[in-house]
Design a protein around this nucleic acid. Structure first.
Lengths: 188, 188
DNA sequence: TACCTGATGTCAGTTACTGACGTAAGGCTA
DNA sequence: TAGCCTTACGTCAGTAACTGACATCAGGTA
């Protein structure tokens, strides 16, 4: 082990979540988060662009995985099938840590600034998925519309899975939500 | 005329837009905006909750109008028809000042913080429209889905109208976008 | 005339965020 | 092994967003 014990980002993210839960996002200061992680405020900003970003570190990882799954999905799948397959395939990222994810969502739900950040992350995710669909040969505006629908499916499923009323796995809830949307949009 | 010349908010909004255009949102300070409007920084914050909000003052007005139009729409109209009618009915708010609205959108497009604010405004607009639809007797999750679709229709139409390639009135472009979405979702 | 209200100014303070510079461990190369 | 470079961090000073407390003053009201 070197001079600096590793896992700085893990410590920062854990400290931030704990403080945001106990004192609220606004009243917890970046200096306190850093101190709890055994670091300084300046170092916090070397790991995260701003105070909110510490809660969204995993979003790029999720986006990269989803894009890869869409691009590599079976070419015979329709656009919405490819998106749904990617969503269920990526569900494993959350599957094992539902408690942690739920705590994070509660913190976000309690603060408008964090909701803004989450919305723009989802917006960029939709744009990336649309790009992946175009890579499969799906033309606009269909690519964007299906990508937006995919994000909507994910949001609905994620909320139900977090809510706890639905005891099934996230992947199953996603499949279920996709079926609901299909039923609603294919009405004559 | 009293001690304080009226129209403080108009002056602040004009000054903010001018400064954001010429120097960018980030490098323009609130103190400068206030000074250009003949006021102080503290007074700026008595009119707007934060620096971004000065560009979104009209959003509550639009939301209130749209909700009213949805609630008061002909009871025989389907949910999507009621939403579309409300959107075309509210288009007049923008119709007369396309240049100003276009400038505002360019400023927003150039800054991620402003995009975040716009996304949460649209998200709240969708929630308000869903509430208006429920008031018409539309059950969930249909109310939310149609409201989200309505916002999507508006966004697409607004962008095209702002873009200038489409010379028709905003109301007509909205009707056109609604038709496109209907065609895409009713495919068998 | 005295009081009250509403919009503003003044001022001090906290906190998010940034740039510049210093420091120490570990690895690499001559 | 000595020198060097990179990497991760600390220190410090500074800007600007935002807030609370208090003062001011015109106009309306009792």
């Amino acid at each position: 082990m070197g001079r600096w014990p590793g896992g700085a980002t893990e410590r920062l993210e854990r400290a931030a979540l704990e403080l945001f839960q106990s004192r609220g996002f606004e009243s917890a200061t970046v200096a306190e988060i850093a101190q709890r992680a055994g670091l300084t405020e300046r170092t916090f900003y070397r790991h995260y662009a701003d105070k909110r970003e510490v809660l969204f570190a995993g979003s790029t990882q999720l986006e990269d995985l989803l894009v890869r799954l869409v691009v590599e999905a079976d070419p015979s799948l329709s656009p919405i099938q490819a998106i749904t397959a990617a969503l269920t395939g990526a569900a494993g990222i959350f599957e094992g840590r539902r408690s942690l994810v739920s705590q994070r969502q509660k913190v976000i739900a309690a603060n408008p600034e964090l909701q803004e950040r989450e919305l723009i992350k989802l917006s960029r995710l939709a744009a990336a998925l649309a790009g992946a669909l175009r890579q499969r040969g799906v033309p606009e505006p269909g690519a964007t519309l299906v990508a937006e629908a995919g994000v909507a499916i994910f949001r609905v499923a994620f909320d139900r899975w977090i809510g706890g009323a639905d005891q099934r796995s996230l992947a199953v809830v996603i499949t279920d939500s996709a079926g609901h949307l299909r039923a609603l949009t294919s009405a004559h």
